[in-house]
Amino acid sequence: MSERILSVLVEDKPGVLARISSTISRRGFNINSLSVGPTNIDGRSKMTIVTELESVEQVKKQLNKLINVIKIVELDPDNTIESEVLLMKVSINKDSQTSVIEKANLSGAKSVDVGQDYAVFELTGTSKELKKFENLMKPFGIIEMIRGGRIAIQSNL
C-alpha cells in the first residue's frame, strides 16, 4: 500500500488548522484524509494526516516549518491501530427493513435511529471495513453518508 499516516502534534492556537490546510493545498500535496482533535495534554491537538508515499517527505518537511507544529511522527503501518467513524442513512421499506438491519448489525454497525423509511447506522472501523460496509448498503439506497476522518495511534509492540 502506498499510503502513509502522519501523526502531527500541534499547538492548539487559532488558525492552526487553516495553516496546515493552506500549506497542503499551496504545495499541491495529495491528502487522503485529515482529522483533528484535542489530546490529553492541555493546549495540544493532534492531527492525523493520510497521504501518498511520494508526497510524504515533503509534507513532513513543509508542515514542520510551521511554527505551531511541534512534532510529526510517521506511523509504522504494521504497527498502527487505525480507526474511523461512519454515519450512514439508508433507505428502507417494509420488505427490506429486516434484511438491511440484520446485514448492518452483522457488519458490526449499530442502528442508532430507525424511522418509517430510513435507518441510520454508526460504524467504527478501518477505512477498508467502512468501504466494505458502504458497498454492502449501496443496493438498498444510501440517502446520506458521512465519515469522520481517519485517526491512528502507534501500538506499543
Binding site: P14, G15, A18, R19, S22, T23, R26, K65, L66, I67
Partner: peptide, 13 residues
C-alpha cells in the same frame, strides 16, 4: 492574518 498566511514565515493576531 488569513491573506498573509502563505506570504509570511509566521503571523499573529
Amino acid at each position: 492574518v488569513g491573506l498573509t498566511m502563505a506570504a509570511t514565515k509566521h503571523n499573529y493576531l
